[in-house]
């Protein structure tokens, strides 16, 4: 059932379904391929466009491979399922059936890193952006609010390139639609980059800190110019990267951006050193990975001195 409207979506997933359902009416080149996940939400669209809304059942290798085939036929495919089954299980299909074939498409994953905290490791994919980042030519969007989904998704649907749109149930209080690194707060002691849903924790952590905060809902391409512009206003080239997925995923980009500048970099994100074997809530998982406001603040104080 589609309950929300295009202007006031209640969740990123609802926004995604609403926008794609509407676009199917006006864009005959658009096709949606599913592997059971969200098929119930696309029932109305599938009834109207049975040739372009395709549920292949629980077959994720085929999901991505057929998406590449749809692109080869000249359509713009939207390929959607839960993140681990979209990016990790059929990773070679992404590498070969999209990138090696030199075609575009829009991959839309749900589940963030640990939306499914109580579902366990099988339903968590904190390595998704790092995996996509190992392949050339991808735009990666990490919206932090449902209202940010629409402009990112509409642009993706209208393009020809390869886009990974990473949706989550974790959201910030306020939407910041826009491109590149957006300036949220200015300070003197360093620059903190918050990606997607971690912005609120970063803002809470830095409420009394003298730092510049940048916000990114698009992390690939990496906004080198935006980072350099922010650094021109601080006393030292100290950069803190806070990402809601694998820690340090964008560290190589930040280091490359600052290759001519003596700098220090702290990366915060989902821990790499061990598998978190716990259930509970996303908030508890965020805390376990050091992504809660208190732990971020402590890390900042140590790093910035």
């Amino acid at each position: 059932m589609i309950a929300s409207t295009l202007t006031t979506p209640t969740a990123m997933r609802d926004a995604f379904v609403d926008i794609v359902t509407a676009e199917l009416e006006v864009n005959p080149q658009l096709a949606v391929v599913l592997a059971e996940i969200s098929a119930d939400r696309f029932e109305r669209a599938a009834a109207r466009h049975p040739d372009r809304v395709l549920n292949l059942g629980i077959r994720e290798q085929l999901l991505v491979g057929a998406g590449g085939g749809l692109a080869l036929s000249g359509l713009r495919p939207v390929v959607h399922t839960y993140a681990p089954f979209l990016v990790e299980r059929p990773f070679e299909q992404i590498k070969l059936d999209f990138v090696h074939q030199d075609v575009g498409g829009v991959l839309v994953g749900i589940g963030g890193s640990f939306d499914g905290a109580n579902l366990g490791r099988t339903h968590q994919a904190p390595g998704d952006v790092a995996l996509i980042d190992s392949l050339p030519g991808w735009t990666v969007h990490v919206p932090g609010h449902p209202a940010e989904v629409e402009p990112l998704l509409r642009a993706a649907l209208a393009g020809q390139d390869r886009v990974y749109l990473r949706l989550s149930t974790e959201t910030n209080r306020d939407a910041h639609p826009g491109t590149g690194f957006q300036l949220i707060r200015t300070g003197r002691r360093g620059v903190v980059i918050a990606v997607g849903p971690v912005l609120d924790a970063v803002l809470d952590a830095t409420a009394t800190a003298d730092v510049t905060v940048l916000y990114a809902s698009t992390i690939r391409p990496f906004d080198t110019a935006g980072l350099c512009a922010a650094l021109s206003g601080v006393d030292r080239a100290d950069v803190v990267l806070v990402e809601p997925y694998l820690r340090g995923t964008s560290a190589h980009q930040a280091n490359e951006a600052l290759s001519e500048v003596p700098h220090r970099l702290l990366s915060l994100g989902v821990r790499r050193d061990e598998e978190l074997r716990a259930y509970g809530t996303p908030a508890e998982h965020a805390a376990a990975h050091g992504l809660d406001a208190r732990t971020i603040r402590a890390a900042l104080d140590t790093f910035l001195g």
Binding site: V33, L62, A66, G69, L72, Q93
Partner: peptide, 11 residues
């Protein structure tokens, strides 16, 4: 073959 299925569906 998976690509072929998508290609046939798209055509």
């Amino acid at each position: 073959l998976p690509i072929g299925v998508g290609l046939a569906l798209g055509l």
